[in-house]
């Protein structure tokens, strides 16, 4: 009996092993929602953008195929180059500012203190507000007549007259950067915090026993081991800064004297002020190429890491 039972088990095991891999269509079925999502919201719009960029495409009226004319026009468009230069300047400044605020915050809340959790939540809170809403909120705060900032500064006698930062370039840019740091530093803090917390405790203890002081531990252990989190935070911050629109559209409205028009803002102006959708599409595609290039460089750098445990 026993041997018969054993044989049966062995045979059913064989059957299990010989069973073909699950059908390919099953895998496809699982992937379908993602494929539909990416196709509908990314690939089709991308192809349409490229298609539109080869046309003279007014909002109303007949479209006309113009080949590479839009791209050639891009090369000589000084407003576009200015906006691209401005976007790069903004990206550099805001990314640096976010990192400088978020990293100390991450170090602060990475402590086994009961209050650390409360502060983590407080610092993260502005992240959940939309950019449009945050920009509008800051517009109110900045209002020279009724804004909170003006009242505090004038009320405390710190200034005689309510400041009007949006009337010149650097104060306007600084205000936008301040708002963006307030709104997004919490998110970067969380990314950096995960990096900090992924450093094994015993590695830090080993460094202590090896006689490394706090500064050496930070420089030689913490920073190198957080490299991936840093790179991720940089990629996300740079990408979103390169695509900045709401804050300039709402707070500075491109001013003063069109000096704070970002790349996406100029795409908006071309498409929905001048109604040149074809030209706007060409600008969008050019910006996509720039962004892919920047991200590829960053991601390549991120992958070029030696084997780590």
């Amino acid at each position: 009996m026993g041997s018969v039972a054993k044989e049966t088990t062995a045979r059913s095991d064989d059957l299990e092993l010989n069973k073909p891999e699950p059908e390919g269509w099953l895998g496809l079925l699982f992937m379908l929602p993602s494929i539909a999502f990416i196709t509908g919201l990314f690939i089709i719009p991308l192809i349409m953008t490229i298609w539109m960029s080869f046309h003279n495409w007014p909002l109303l009226g007949r479209t006309k195929f113009v080949g590479l004319a839009n791209y050639i026009e891009l090369l000589g468009d000084s407003q576009l180059w200015h906006s691209l230069g401005f976007t790069l300047l903004y990206t550099g400044l805001v990314t640096a500012a976010i990192m400088m605020v978020a990293f100390p915050l991450a170090l602060l809340v990475d402590r086994p203190l009961r209050l650390a959790g409360v502060f983590r939540t407080i610092y993260f809170m502005p992240v959940v507000i939309g950019f449009g809403a945050a920009s509008t909120l800051w517009m109110w705060l900045l209002n020279p007549d009724s804004g909170v900032f003006a009242q505090i500064l004038v009320g405390n006698g710190l200034v005689d007259k309510a400041p009007r930062p949006l009337e010149s370039f650097w104060p306007a840019l600084s205000i936008v950067i301040l708002m963006v740091v307030w709104k997004t530093a919490g998110f970067t803090m969380v990314i950096l915090l995960t990096g900090l917390q992924s450093i094994p405790g015993d590695v830090m203890e080993a460094a202590k026993i090896d006689g490394a002081n706090a500064l050496t531990r930070f420089r030689r252990i913490t920073l190198p081991l957080m490299r991936n989190s840093f790179m991720l935070a940089l990629v996300l911050n740079i990408t979103s800064s390169m695509l900045a629109f709401d804050q300039f559209f709402i707070i500075t409205q491109g001013g003063p004297e069109n000096s704070t028009i970002s790349a996406v803002f100029s795409i908006y102006l071309a498409s929905f002020s001048s109604y040149r959708l074809g030209y706007g599409s060409a600008m969008s595609f050019a910006l996509l190429v720039v962004l892919v290039a920047i991200s590829s460089i960053q991601l390549t750098f991120m992958r070029q890491r030696p084997e780590e445990s």
Binding site: P200, D202, V203, E205, A206, A207, I221, P224, R227, E308
Partner: peptide
């Protein structure tokens, strides 16, 4: 010498 060796991975 630690249980998980605690070598510096980088």
């Amino acid at each position: 010498v630690f249980q998980n060796y605690a070598l510096y991975p980088h």
